[in-house]
Design a binder for these strands. Structure first.
Lengths: 223, 223
DNA sequence: CGATCAATTTACAATTATTTTACAAAAGGG
DNA sequence: CCCTTTTGTAAAATAATTGTAAATTGATCG
């Protein structure tokens, strides 16, 4: 599948730029507007979006109003808003928004939530193809050159995260958060051990690169 | 690349000018007010700031009051204050300020703290572009003319500091503080050796200038 | 309860990174 | 110029990180 397209409506320069850059790194296609009206004008001409990130307070037309235009097309919305404005939260979620992020937020947190929203909307691939592997996220199975390879649950989850983020170095901390869901502090070699298992079982000694002091990267040259 | 915008509220002419000048050199965009009320009046019309430096004692409206206006927008605040006024410190930090500088302060110290605060608020660029390099601070990777160059962790950290402070000479002592985090006293050639590695690996013999008796400077004429 | 299997921790070996050393080369500074 | 100090850098020494087998812990199920 081609990459998911994300509509961004955000007037703050710094945040908009950061979003654009990070989503691009994460493999999304983005279109960014600093004005709600402009976003809508463009949207009526081209509504091929899979997800929208809308700042609530934005010039031209506010985020809630923008959402009304997206609704008929079933495009899920995640709102971005300045500090704990509980009213916006209520209005946004009851109005049909999928999720809600309070600024300033962690980019990784946003990426995780976007993943979840896209999965719920059935806009993610169920089968990933990386290197010589076919990873079935519904059956939790992996085939390598057509032959089934048996992975334990955590090994599988780790492989999925590496595959979804191929060619990108991921720190041990982030792997722990993404796969294990823990904000683990202190020392643990769990990640390393599981990486070792994947390397052994899938013969990925070369393809899973160690990034010293940081973490690991699954390399797939072809892209 | 657009720069981070900093709101400065400081009535002392000399300090205000110094801040404006130094931050501009360091690549920030600044707006400076000498009166708290004026700053707030302007802020309600344009709140596109990434950080605020607030003098506590300032005419019109004091720093704490100004902060209350910034809070809802999640704009981090660093207080500047005349003396070692412990009360202000307590009031400021408990009121939500990110950090606190006592005058007179080292400009480099302030720049360091600003960096930290911006990073915490997720408002720093993840990808730096300097000379022919693209430095990805999330993946800890460097591309030169599109080709990946492999750096060891400390080499990478050093490059980031040089890049963030390009065209500014940095002493060995400060490099040690910024990269290695140590207030190392005495003799060490560690910095020199790592500079040598960067020059070799990235062919920056010309661009990393030695500043005799002081330290080094990464030059990027284009700015 | 055990038996079984997955997950994590431990412990130590292997590898890689960092710092120091030592000397050569270059730069200042009379 | 010459002498002194500073800097460049290869290579040795030291330190830290990573790989991984094996032991331990935890969870599940009859």
């Amino acid at each position: 599948m081609s990459r998911n397209r994300v509509l961004i409506v955000e007037d703050e320069e710094a945040i908009g730029r950061l979003l654009t850059m990070n989503l691009k790194m994460a493999g999304y296609e983005t279109v960014w507007f600093q004005d709600g009206q402009e976003a809508v004008d463009s949207f009526v001409k081209d509504h091929r979006f899979d997800l929208a990130l809308l700042d609530v307070m934005v010039p031209g037309m506010d985020g809630f109003a923008v959402m009304e235009f997206l609704k008929p097309y079933g495009i899920p919305v995640i709102f971005l808003t300045a500090k704990d404005d509980i009213n916006s939260k209520v209005q946004g979620l009851s109005g049909g928004a999928e999720d809600y992020m309070v600024k300033p937020f962690e980019m990784l947190e946003l990426l995780l939530r976007m993943e979840k929203v896209l999965a719920r909307a059935n806009k993610t691939e169920d089968i990933l193809h990386v290197l010589n592997m076919e990873i079935n996220t519904i059956e939790h199975s992996v085939k390598q050159n057509g032959a089934e390879v048996s992975l334990k649950p955590m090994e599988f989850e780790l492989l999925v995260v590496l595959a979804k983020n191929k060619n990108r170095a991921i720190s041990r901390e982030n792997l722990l958060r993404m796969v294990w869901g823990t904000d683990y502090m202190g020392e643990t070699r769990t990640v390393d051990v599981h990486i070792g298992q994947l390397r052994k079982k899938l013969k990925l000694g070369e393809q899973i690169k160690t990034v010293s002091k940081l973490g690991y990267r699954l390399e797939d040259v072809e892209g």
